[in-house]
Design a protein around this nucleic acid. Sequence first.
DNA 1: AACAGTTAGTTCCAATTAGGAACTGATAGT
DNA 2: ACTATCAGTTCCTAATTGGAACTAACTGTT
Lengths: 159, 159
Amino acid sequence: MRWQDIDQQPCSLARSLAIIGDNWTLLVLRDCFLGVRRFDDFQQRLGVTRHVLSDRLRKLADGGVLEKVAYQERPLRHEYRLTPMGRDLYPVIAHLAQWGDKYLAGDAGPPLVRVHRQCGEPLEAKLQCGHCGDSVEPKDIRLEENPHWAGQLLPTQAG
Amino acid sequence: MRWQDIDQQPCSLARSLAIIGDNWTLLVLRDCFLGVRRFDDFQQRLGVTRHVLSDRLRKLADGGVLEKVAYQERPLRHEYRLTPMGRDLYPVIAHLAQWGDKYLAGDAGPPLVRVHRQCGEPLEAKLQCGHCGDSVEPKDIRLEENPHWAGQLLPTQAG
DNA sequence: AACAGTTAGTTCCAATTAGGAACTGATAGT
DNA sequence: ACTATCAGTTCCTAATTGGAACTAACTGTT
């Protein structure tokens, strides 16, 4: 199976990765959350080649994560802004950054601290159940298959 | 800049992506959380080519996300298990899957429902501040630079 | 003893993608 | 007329991927 065909799988993670799972794409989104909007700014901050950046921005716009907004006419130029769909990716980025802070920071410590404005403390992101409010770990989750794909998604218990 | 050199950037997200940001890697981890442990099982479920799978498993093991455990001698064979570091990626996967459920599900609806065992309700993952317990959105976060990289990480306010 | 089966990879080759640098086009400022 | 801005595109080489076959070290079966 080709990587570019994973959007056709009946798996929400696979479909998500079809839009944001390419190399560089999550770094583009990191910069979007930092307020970067223009092609050359992305290119200089990331150091990615221009045609890879062009491809990633097009995929993000086609996927609905970013929208292309004209910021001037003559010559017509566009910038890229997060849509609500894109903003919904913030928890993914926050958890990934926190994971890097925890396991991969060098001697100087984490490069950025994310302070929660409301309480003034560094954010300690946790996965919590929106219904009961408890912290959630992998073992707390039971998976239920949609009957439409019954038996096709989960591995057979063999070990 | 080459993609394989992003682990040298002083950005926790970039360093995280150096380990888990390649194509296929998060799908390998999805299967790990479903209990898949063996090479051929990953290969058949994912449809990825064997040498890409081999490469990704090696990177995950080198990065500390998976550990290679011998499950038999004669002939010596290993399986791959999540480490605590790997298990800490669960929030990332849960949020990505939920995002796909919300925006990318087809007519049949999301393929899997993640039920929180403790409360019996479908998990609605939310990003919450571990300190005050409030839900957190991008605008609620203020970034503080580590003085060691002062002025080098955040974009200059220009737009 | 000969043969098929299991299983974690490796090897080979063609096709695709990435990296690097230069170039384009429309326009503004000097 | 010349330089700068800025979002791309084009060109070429190098690296990676996809697909299929192959290897090695056994076990179980005829």
